[in-house]
Simulated scan of single mutants.
Amino acid sequence: MSENLKGLCTRASYLGYFGSYGKKDYVEGLSDINVVAISEDKTLLLELASEGFSPVVLSKEQLENLCKEGDPLCLYIMKSEPICGELPNVKFVKTEKSCERLGKAVIALYIISLLAFFRGDEKSSLENSYRTLRTLIQWRSCIENYDIPLSADEVEKNCELLGLNFCQTFKDLLLLRRFNAPLTLWSLDKIAEAISIFMKIVKASKIYEETKGDVFKISVREDGFIIEKSNKEKVFIPFT
């Protein structure tokens, strides 16, 4: 696959894989293949996406700002696997925004996994449930002044170091991913229970009870979730 991408090397000062591809975390047919390009040529974004990659295209200045602001994406890029070129000499600076971004992503990813589950997209539901719990552990690691873990092994290790009581749930998700097995309402509820230790949340089983699985859109209010059904009817489910 790298050979196919090398034809783009003349248009970027750096091209590399980041995320799970080529690592133990990667699951064929489930994980995205993330590619980063350091370039001023923004047409690379569409070109890479059209080839089935999940691309990020940044200028050198944009990457520097990303790292100065403490965006966790900087860490993934810094640990990327090079295809060609060299990364700029940048340094990740952990800031309050680092933890804040991770915290906000937890609920967003949980909602994506719920929507995928209720529309019958088993792969998306499984992958985004994994990302939800991974991000929750990354967030707690950030809050507690540990390094932000990236790989599944690092996340699992930090979960144990932090003494979190849902590490087994994370291990179970890793096993489900490995075998590309579908999630159940019970599995999603276990993830919600983990989130509820730190944030207000609504369980998947409660949403199913109120909607019978007819879920088109989910919005978050301060006091609960608003579920929009396929007929545009809205159902409010308070946090418990």
Rank of each mutant, 00 (worst) to 15 (best):
E51I: 00
I33P: 14
L45W: 13
E28S: 13
L46E: 13
T43E: 10
K23L: 12
E64P: 06
S54P: 00
G19R: 14
A12K: 03
L46Y: 12
N65G: 09
K60Y: 07
V35C: 11
G19T: 11
G22V: 07
L30A: 10
T43V: 03
V35L: 12
G16M: 07
S13H: 03
D41N: 02
E61I: 08
K42P: 02
D32F: 04
S39F: 01
Y14D: 04
E40D: 04
V56W: 08
E64V: 15
Q62P: 10
V57Y: 08
Y26P: 10
E64C: 08
I33H: 14
F53H: 12
V56D: 09
S39A: 05
V36N: 09
S50P: 00
D32R: 03
Y14L: 03
K23P: 06
E47I: 01
K42C: 03
F18R: 05
C67Y: 08
T43F: 02
E47G: 02
S31C: 10
L30K: 04
E47K: 01
G29V: 06
E69G: 10
F53N: 05
E61C: 06
S54I: 00
Y14M: 04
L66I: 04
S20N: 14
G19I: 08
L45I: 07
N65I: 12
L63F: 02
Y14A: 01
K60H: 09
A49R: 15
S13V: 05
V36R: 10
E40P: 00
V57S: 06
G52E: 01
A49W: 12
L44N: 02
E28R: 15
E40G: 01
G70T: 08
K68Q: 14
Q62C: 03
P55F: 03
A12G: 00
K68N: 12
A37Q: 04
L45K: 13
L44F: 02
G19N: 12
E28H: 14
F18H: 14
E64F: 05
N65K: 10
K24H: 13
I38A: 00
L30C: 11
K23Y: 11
L58Y: 07
C67M: 09
L15H: 00
V57I: 03
D32A: 01
L48D: 03
L48A: 08
V57R: 02
P55S: 11
F53A: 07
V27S: 12
S20T: 12
K23S: 15
G52C: 03
V57D: 13
E51G: 07
L46H: 13
G29L: 06
L66D: 06
V57Q: 07
Q62Y: 01
E51Q: 15
Y17S: 10
S13W: 00
D32C: 05
K23I: 01
Q62F: 02
I33A: 06
Y14T: 04
L46D: 14
S20A: 11
F18L: 06
Q62E: 14
A49E: 15
S59K: 04
G16I: 04
G52I: 04
K68V: 13
P55Q: 12
G70D: 04
N34D: 15
G29I: 04
